[in-house]
Every structure is written in C-alpha cells, then in structure tokens.
Amino acid sequence: MHKKWKWLWIVVPLILVTAGGLYYSAVVKNPGSFLSQDRIINEINKQFRNGETEEILDIEYLDDRNVFVPFRSNKDQYGMAYWEWRMNEWELMMVSSSGNPVMISSNEGDPENQFIVWNLHPDDEVEKAVFYLTMERNFQVSQGEQLYTPRVQMKEEIGFEKSYGSMKMPADWSTYMKSYQQALAPEDGIPFDVFNDAFFPQPHFAYGWIPYTNQNEVAELQHTRGQSGFSSGYTETILQLNPSELESSSEES
C-alpha cells in the first residue's frame, strides 16, 4: 500500500509537465504570415471613428511579433495601427487617427522592446526629428539620507525619408532606464518611499520630440492631427517639446 503511493510523487508531476508542454505547443505558435490587406482594412475600420481607411501606406515588421501599419483615411487623415502576435493570432493593439509619434511597447513596457512609430501628414513637410528621453533633476534629503538624481536628456536624431516610419528605442535609453529602476528598488526591507512619496514626488521618465523642416527650423504641424484612438497595448505619449524646454541647447549641433 505504502509503496504504491510513492510512485505518485514522480508520475503526477511528470504528467503535469507533459500536459503543459503539449498544450503550449498546440496553442502557442510561431507568428504566421500577416493579415491580408482586406483584413487589415476591416479591422482598422471597426475601430476608426472618423471615416474609412482608404490606403495602407506600409506594412512594417518592427520585429517578428509586431507589425506597424500607417494608413490614410478617405478624409485625408493619416493614422496608425499596430498588431502583436499573441499565442496563435495577430491581435490589433492600437488604432489612432493621429500620426503624432508614440512609443509602443509589447511585453508590458519592457524597455528592451519599445518602438517609436509615426505617420505625419505629408503636407507638414517634416525632414527630420529629434527624440528625447528626459528625467528631471532632483534632490532629496530624508532621515539623513541624501539622493541626487541628475538631469537626463538623451537624444536620438533621425531623418525622415517618408512621412511615416518607426524607430527602435535606442539601446542607451533602455540600459539607463533598467539600471535606474533596479537601483531604486529597495531590498525587501524598508520601502523607501512609503512616507516619502507624499512629500517627495519621485522624478519620472518622459519622452519628447522636436520636428524640423528642411530649413532646420522647428516645424509647425498644421495638418497632423492630435491624439485620439484606441489602444489596448502599452503606448506612451511623446510630447512635442519647445527647444526652450531643453537644457544646454546652446551646445547642441
């Protein structure tokens, strides 16, 4: 009687692991080919409030699981959509009637897999853009502990050959953000910010950008529309900045 039960300790976990493996390989598949043009248009139109999709400008694989589709509507609006491959199908994660750059991330905001996408109105004639990762300079003194946070202002410049496109988040940005998050996490000891948060708001990361015309002047976006749309993915706003909001801009080339 005793001996029979001992086998259970080996057999039960083995069955569970095998069942799990079978389920995983049956349900979770590698990305299949992307949707047809008709499918794409259909799915976008279901979400798109302002008219209908007239032209798909591009189908761009950001990586093997994320596809970015800038499009133009029949009302001359330039919008964006993106799909992510989840388990066994392509899932629509965002439709926006605005082409202003946004940061999208698959994988719950993992800094390794984030992309900036945009679809500006061609009439705005933007030649290049500079994107920024910023964080406020901060100091904090509490219970004898001093914390200094340097101002972060990292930039990445990109020329626009077309009015739509994408860019992977620069590696330096994700390295710094990950390091910062790790350094702030208290050991499972005193949660540093339990009382502090109310009195000492922590600085946050922010994304920004400045568009330029071919005369190297800051572009005024008259035609590109503001943010609106749906998103079930993780999108972060990229604020359009004024050069006067940047530090040390006299040193910039």
């Binding site: 100091f139 200094y148 101002r151 801009s249 006299s250």
Partner: peptide, 22 residues
C-alpha cells in the same frame, strides 16, 4: 558625503536652461 541639495542648486541657480551643465 552626497550633497544632493548643494549639487542641485549649483547647477540650477543663476543658470538659464541653455547653459546648465549637469
């Protein structure tokens, strides 16, 4: 010693955005 407050004001005080050195 980390002198967070001093460092902060050194950079920010009397310096406009364009000529701040981190």
């Amino acid at each position: 010693a980390v002198q967070s407050e001093e460092w902060y004001y050194d950079t920010v005080m009397d310096h406009e955005m364009e000529d701040r050195n981190e």
